[in-house]
Design a protein around this nucleic acid. Structure first.
Lengths: 233, 233
DNA sequence: GAGTGGTCTAGACCACTTT
DNA sequence: AAGTGGTCTAGACCACTCC
């Protein structure tokens, strides 16, 4: 029942990245060097690196090297942002409103989130596109994982970039459960929206490098100006 | 600018599968045999086969062999069916109503569908779950690709299985554009549904082995009994 | 030209399935 | 025991990037 060597190598490298030995944007040693350090051949090190690339943890460039994935405001402003316009282009929304508060975690949240935190931060945002409502987002993250988060307000547009830089927390996958609902008075009121609007409600759990759930998010999408793009498998 | 050998090998094998030389469910020659036939080493044949497996075209089993992917009513009744219940399990709906008609293709359909067909089949279905409405589906496929389709009614539950068996057309990927809408009188009427229901409307294009668009589908999902599960990247 | 990842080969051995 | 895919190694050469 031994793990394959390349799996062990994969885990070792991932651990070094998660620990901050190789921070986002930094370059990894070359294949031969990694193989030497982990006592495996270049081919095996290569396989581990290819798996890491497939997972999105690193990026490899012929002639340059292997780099730990860096989410920058420029090239990944809206990673995990599924909204597209009719031409299939990602839309660039405007942030209208934001709030960050701290509160006790519910039992349900403790069960799902990494480390069962006592307290969570709740980040609420309202975004528009061309003056029309686009999304209402409520993100719940463990407070212990992101000390001082409220003091950083206003948060950058792309929150995951902040997570990565300030807290060495790299989000690499997320699943979302979607339902169609009517917006309702409670959600519509604060921003003066039409409570009878049909909206797409997404409940998301986001996983970091080590497959820990570091965010529970509820997104309300208004799909008049944009649509939600999903790939089926 | 030469293609890598493994890419050529991949294309060759895919072509043989698409042509029916290796029909779904059949076994492929082993790695050494394929390498010999295509004048590449076993390692290169292996890489091509691994890519095919990644794409979902073949399935490999240690000790058994490499098999062309076979969608059976049992194990993939609802491939590309994104609806799940609250436990994350795929739901098994009941088919209430079905119709298959032929009509002229619109210009928009011709532009999107493979081979710009003059005529298309329109397959409409209504499904329920536990007595509640679940989906209204309208599938548009090129008539020339599926001769005699209407005579095969009632169609099996899983249409893609039929496509594969009777027409050697294997669907391997699909993208869907989602919006939240109100059902409306026109769609609600025929089945006596509540026209004020909020519904999730998905417009899907399905691709086959050779990346040809062989289906345009509009799905209306009722998300009271189930939700739509999406994976973000 | 030196260094990197990408391709390709040849061969060895392991793990699983079937006969 | 025979046959398959899975792992691992060692070495060669190619293509790209940077100095």
């Amino acid at each position: 029942m031994n793990k394959p060597l390349y799996q062990t190598a994969y885990d070792e490298i991932l651990k070094l990245i998660a620990e901050g030995t190789f921070p986002p944007g930094s370059i990894l040693p070359n294949e031969f060097e990694i193989g030497k350090r982990l006592n495996v051949s270049q081919g095996t090190a290569r396989k581990a690196l290819s798996l890491l690339e497939q997972k999105g943890v690193v990026q490899r460039r012929q002639g340059k090297g292997t780099f730990v994935t860096l989410r920058t405001p420029e090239d990944s402003l809206f990673n995990f942002y599924p909204l597209r316009d009719d031409q299939g282009q990602q839309v660039i929304p405007d942030l209208e409103n934001e709030s960050v508060t701290k509160r006790k975690a519910t039992k349900a949240e403790q069960e799902i989130l990494h480390d069962a935190p006592q307290e969570v931060f709740v980040i609420s945002r309202y975004r528009t596109l061309n003056g029309s409502p686009l999304t209402l987002e409520e993100s719940i993250v463990p407070a212990p994982l992101f000390p001082g988060l409220p003091e950083r307000a206003p948060l950058p547009n792309a929150m995951y970039v902040l997570f990565q830089h300030a807290y060495a927390c790299v989000i690499i996958s997320a699943v979302e459960q979607l339902r169609a609902e009517i917006l309702g008075e409670e959600k519509a009121g604060p921003h003066g929206l039409d409570p009878t609007s049909p909206v797409l409600v997404g409940r998301r759990e986001s996983l970091d490098l080590l497959d820990r759930v570091v965010e529970i998010r509820t997104n309300i999408y208004f799909t008049t100006e944009a649509h939600y793009s999903a790939k089926l498998e």
